[in-house]
Structures are given as structure tokens and as C-alpha cells.
């Protein structure tokens, strides 16, 4: 009997553009997710502070809406963003269909409720006495807000990383609004790790799909590692 030795690792030589292809996909994934999370954070943090600090009629409803937003179905978000940027939509004139900008928009919509909701919980968990102390020492409203952010820093960092996790592992909406496009030379235009995995698996190129999956898993693990590290550091300070 002749034994065939099967290599345990996929031969990348079978795909002459493989590394270039993989690198460009990682770049697009990180670019879209990081920009979306940065914009979401800039939007979500003030909203969380505003809702967390003020007492108004309907506050519980607003909080419920934010929490509901955390579970938004990504394909529905993708559909809504696609309509918004399509020729019939309000942003049709900007020609954003199948662009990274449209993908950023959809990931913004998905990440913002997560960052807002978790930040709101973190801000709400800061004891009123600490805010009173800052005020008692002559702090302005801005000073008190800064103290609150600092006290809630671990929770807010968790919120941002959770938003990043939601964005980077998202497949439905980026597929709809990005179109999963790669150029003829294998350079990703709007192809992300998740959409590429879906495509490669569908076309039977399991080695590439698994390689991309491993990269995605490594990124998610990295994010979770940071989360765990932050969690274990809570209560001990950080920058003193």
C-alpha cells in the first residue's frame, strides 16, 4: 500500500497572490472596523454621559432603546444602509454603494448601541458620592464628567473593545453594502475577513478559508485577551 503524505498545513504556493490577498483583506477588515469603532466611540460616549447624568422623563425608554440596539440584526442594518446610499436613498448622490465608507456606516450603526449601552452601564455604576466629592471640591460639570469617565475607564474600555468585536466579526451587513469585492490582482476592495471566509468556503478553498478564519480568531482572541486583562486590572487604578 502506498501511503500518500498529506501536508498538515495548506500549501500557500498554490495561490500565487495568497499573502497579498490575505494582507489586503486584513487591512480592509481592520480599517473598516477601527474607523467605525472610533466614530462610534466619539458618538456613543457623550450620549452615554448625557443619558447617565441627566434625569428626564422617558430615560428608561431611551435606555431600553439603546439596549435593544445591541441586538440589531446585521442584515437589516445592511439593508437600511444600502437603501440610504443607493440611488433612491438620501445619500445616493455620494455614490457610496459597495465602498468601504458604506461598510463603515453599517458597522457604525451596529457598534454604536453596544458602546453606548456598555458605557452607560459603566458610567451608571460610578458611585454618586464620588461625583459629589468632585463637585464639593469645586469641580465644574465638566470636571465631574471627567472624573466619572476616569472612574468608569475600565467599563468604557470594555465597551469600545466589545464594539470592535461586534464590528470585526460582522458578516451580514458588510456583505450587503460592501459587495465582497476584490480586484483582478487579488487586492481586496471591500472584502473583509468574514466575507472572504464565506466566499472561500463556498468555492471549496477550505485552506484559505481556514487561514482567514485563524487570522480572524486571533484578532478576536487578542481583543478578548485585552478585555480579560482590563477586567483583572479594575479596581487597581491604571494611570495614577
Amino acid at each position: 500500500m502506498i501511503l500518500e503524505i498529506v501536508p498538515l498545513t495548506p500549501s500557500l504556493l498554490e495561490f500565487p497572490f495568497e499573502w497579498h490577498y490575505v494582507r489586503s483583506i486584513i487591512y480592509v477588515s481592520l480599517y473598516v472596523s477601527l474607523v467605525a469603532v472610533a466614530l462610534s466611540t466619539l458618538f456613543s460616549l457623550p450620549v452615554a454621559m448625557l443619558v447617565g447624568f441627566s434625569e428626564f422623563r422617558g430615560k428608561q425608554l431611551v435606555t431600553a432603546v439603546i439596549n435593544t440596539g445591541m441586538g440589531l440584526p446585521s442584515v437589516v442594518v445592511g439593508l437600511a444602509v444600502l437603501f440610504t446610499v443607493s440611488n433612491q436613498g438620501p445619500l445616493g448622490s455620494f455614490d457610496l454603494v459597495f465602498t468601504t465608507e458604506a461598510m463603515i456606516m453599517s458597522q457604525f450603526v451596529l457598534a454604536a448601541p453596544v458602546i453606548t449601552g456598555v458605557s452607560l452601564a459603566a458610567v451608571g455604576s460610578v458611585e454618586g458620592g464620588v461625583r459629589d466629592a468632585a463637585y464639593a471640591m469645586g469641580g465644574t460639570r465638566l470636571d465631574v464628567a471627567l472624573v466619572t469617565i476616569k472612574e468608569a475607564r475600565y467599563g468604557i474600555a470594555t465597551a469600545v473593545l466589545a464594539g470592535f468585536g461586534r464590528a470585526i466579526s460582522e458578516v451580514g451587513s458588510v456583505l450587503i453594502v460592501g459587495g465582497n469585492i476584490a480586484g483582478p490582482d487579488g487586492t481586496s476592495k471591500t472584502r473583509t475577513l468574514t466575507t472572504a471566509i464565506q466566499l472561500e468556503a463556498r468555492q471549496g478553498r477550505f485552506e484559505t478559508a481556514m487561514l482567514l478564519g485563524a487570522v480572524l480568531l486571533a484578532l478576536v482572541l487578542l481583543v478578548n485577551g485585552i478585555l480579560v486583562r482590563l477586567g483583572s486590572g479594575s479596581g487597581t487604578g491604571g494611570v495614577r
Binding site: 458620592g129 464620588v130 466629592a133 468632585a134 472624573v147 476616569k150 472612574e151 487604578g237
Partner: peptide
């Protein structure tokens, strides 16, 4: 105050 309400810092 009755409670110290110190910041989580040095």
C-alpha cells in the same frame, strides 16, 4: 461626607 468617596487613584 460620612463616606470618604475617594477616587480610584493614588
Amino acid at each position: 461626607f460620612q463616606a470618604a468617596n475617594l477616587f480610584d487613584a493614588s
